[in-house]
């Protein structure tokens, strides 16, 4: 078992499902301390051995990306995770694609006409342990109308966001106060 047992408890799962649906415009759930510490430590270890590749188009994005860590890939195909997703989303969902992203000073994404998300579910596994809001780097969801929603950063957290029609997202520019720190997270889609 690699998931924090409190997220496998039936009563808790029922509560998580109801919380997920509470925000009608942007159904989402953000779970802290998601993995058992030992497993999370191993994920971080694997991440530190991965090679990230810089990708940049000044008009739309600047970041580094790496393929999904092997440990996360196996976890996504486990029955433990599939059952968890079923309990939260109320239907069978699988991880389809996704990559590990790293944002450091001067990196960002912007909303752009050429890069429009179709409705669906995002899965975010945050691996950023040493970060502060003042550094920028927030993952921000923008509904067609209404307020921006910033996803709280926290290492070892799992976030699921249901993007309805017109909902887009961007990563706020990382400023000089980040120094050499990096904002690292897995971002994938569920279907």
């Amino acid at each position: 078992m690699v998931v924090n047992p409190q997220y496998l408890d039936k009563e808790n799962l029922a509560q998580i499902q109801s919380l997920f649906k509470q925000n009608k415009e942007l159904p989402s759930i953000h779970l802290h301390s998601f993995f058992e510490l030992n497993f999370y430590g191993k994920i971080l270890e694997e991440i530190s051995s991965l090679s990230f590749k810089k990708e940049k188009d000044p008009l739309t994005h600047s970041y580094s990306a790496a393929n999904i860590p092997r440990l996360l890939s196996s976890f996504f195909s486990s029955s433990e995770f599939k059952d968890f997703l079923f309990s939260v989303g109320g239907k069978r969902l699988s991880v389809i694609g996704g990559r590990l992203f790293s944002f450091s000073w001067k990196e960002y994404t912007v909303l752009h006409d050429t890069n429009v998300d179709k409705p669906g579910y995002d899965l975010i596994i945050d691996c950023t342990d040493d970060w502060d809001d003042s550094f920028g780097g927030s993952l921000i969801y923008v509904p067609g109308t209404g307020e921006y929603t910033s996803i709280p950063y926290r290492g070892n957290s799992l976030t699921i966001v249901q993007r309805k029609k017109g909902v887009q997202k961007f990563i706020k520019y990382v400023n000089t106060h980040a120094g050499k720190k990096k904002r690292i997270f897995f971002l994938g889609n569920l279907k």
């Binding site: 000044p58 008009l59 912007v110 920028g136 520019y173 106060h177």
Partner: peptide, 8 residues
Amino acid sequence: DTDYLLCH
């Protein structure tokens, strides 16, 4: 401090 305008 930290204000910016990205490429356009």
